[in-house]
Simulated assay, not measured.
Amino acid sequence: MITALTTFTLPKPITREEARRIFLSTAPKYQGVPGLLRKTYLLSEDGLTAGGVYFWNSKAEAEAVYTPAWRSFVKEKYGTEPSITYFESPVVVDNVAQQIFSDE
C-alpha cells in the first residue's frame, strides 16, 4: 500500500469553513477511483497550506490520478501548484473497522 501526501501553499489564507465548503465540492470526484482506499483533506492551522492524505493500493494507481490534468485542476481551484510525496505503507491500523491491514 502507498500513502501519498499532497500539499500546496495557498495564495491567501482560508478559514476552516471555506476549506470545508471547497473540499465538499471536490470530494465526489474521488468516490469510486480505482485503487483509492481513503482520502483525508488537510488544512493547516494558519489556513495557508492545504492538501490531502491519500491511501492507495499501489503507486501505479496513484500516479494514474496525479496527471497533468489533475495538477491543472488543483492550480485552477486553489491558485497554486501541488507537491506530492509518496510513502510506503506496509501496515495500516484502522480503529473504525477494528482491523490491521498489511500489504502482504
Rank of each mutant, 00 (worst) to 15 (best):
Y41Q: 15
G32D: 05
I22F: 09
E88H: 00
L37G: 11
V53Y: 14
V74F: 02
R20V: 00
S72Y: 01
W70Q: 15
I2E: 05
E76W: 02
G79T: 02
P13T: 08
I100Q: 13
F73T: 13
M1Q: 04
Y86L: 01
E81I: 03
N57W: 01
D46M: 09
Y66G: 13
E88T: 02
L24Q: 12
T40S: 15
I22G: 11
P34W: 05
G35N: 13
Y54K: 09
T26C: 04
Y66T: 11
P28G: 07
K29C: 02
E63I: 05
S72Q: 11
R20F: 02
I100M: 15
V74W: 08
T15I: 04
G32L: 13
E17M: 07
V74Q: 14
E17G: 04
S89W: 02
S89K: 00
R71L: 02
A62M: 06
R71C: 05
T49H: 06
K12R: 12
V74T: 14
K39W: 14
A19W: 10
D103A: 06
P13A: 12
L36F: 05
A97D: 13
A64D: 09
V74D: 10
P34D: 10
I100V: 15
E63C: 08
V65I: 13
S102M: 14
G52Y: 07
V74I: 14
E63W: 11
Q31G: 06
F8Q: 14
F101D: 07
L10K: 04
K59S: 01
Y30T: 05
Q31C: 04
V91W: 00
S25A: 10
I100D: 06
S25L: 01
Q99F: 05
P90I: 01
E104C: 07
G52C: 10
S25T: 08
Q31K: 10
S44D: 03
E45Q: 14
A97R: 15
L24T: 06
Q98E: 12
W70R: 12
Q31F: 11
S102C: 12
Q99N: 14
T26W: 12
E104Q: 10
Q31I: 03
K75D: 03
R16G: 01
K12P: 12
Y30M: 06
K29M: 14
V91D: 01
F101E: 07
P11T: 07
S44N: 06
P68Y: 02
K39Q: 05
F87G: 00
A27P: 03
T40I: 06
E61F: 04
V92E: 13
S25W: 08
Y30I: 03
L5A: 08
P82H: 03
Q98L: 09
A4V: 08
S83Y: 00
R20H: 08
I2C: 04
A69W: 10
V33Q: 09
S89L: 12
F8W: 07
D46N: 13
Y78T: 03
T40D: 13
V93A: 15
L36P: 11
T9S: 11
S44E: 07
P34M: 09
T7R: 09
V65Q: 15
P34F: 05
A60P: 08
G79D: 05
E63L: 06
S44I: 10
Y30D: 09
I2A: 01
R71F: 00
L24W: 14
W70N: 15
